Amino acid sequence: MKIIKFKRNTKHEKYYSSAMGTLNSRVTYIKKYVLGFPIKTIHKYRETYYGEVKNCDDCNLFI
């Protein structure tokens, strides 16, 4: 069994863009697991309406 593992998870979230309003987007989380427990989110990115991949710090997410 591996002690440290990295896992990628994708889910749909709503976010707000000032130019286009409220949209749904696929947000991908890369998390670090130690002994099967999530420890830290390494990176969070999303796919835009036009197919580009951007960092999630650029948008306001509604959760």
Rank of each mutant, 00 (worst) to 15 (best):
I63L: 09
G51E: 00
Y16I: 03
S25D: 03
V34S: 02
F62S: 01
K14T: 06
K32A: 07
N60L: 14
Y49C: 11
H12R: 14
T48I: 02
R46F: 13
I4H: 04
E47W: 06
K31T: 12
Y45D: 11
N9F: 02
H12I: 14
P38R: 08
F6N: 10
Y49L: 10
Y29I: 02
Y16K: 11
Y16D: 05
D58F: 02
F62R: 11
C59W: 05
T22M: 14
S17A: 04
F37S: 14
G21I: 04
L23Q: 02
I4C: 07
K5C: 14
M1F: 05
K7A: 13
L61A: 02
Y33L: 08
L61G: 01
M1P: 11
I3A: 13
K54H: 03
K40V: 12
I30V: 14
K31I: 05
P38I: 13
I3G: 04
K7S: 09
L61F: 10
Y45F: 13
Y16Q: 11
Y50M: 12
Y33D: 03
R26P: 15
G51Y: 00
G51I: 02
E13L: 07
K32S: 07
Y50G: 05
C56K: 01
N55I: 02
H12S: 14
I42K: 06
K2V: 02
I39H: 09
K31W: 01
K14Q: 09
T10C: 12
Y49S: 11
Y16L: 06
T41P: 04
R46G: 07
F37A: 08
P38A: 12
N60D: 11
T28W: 02
S18Y: 12
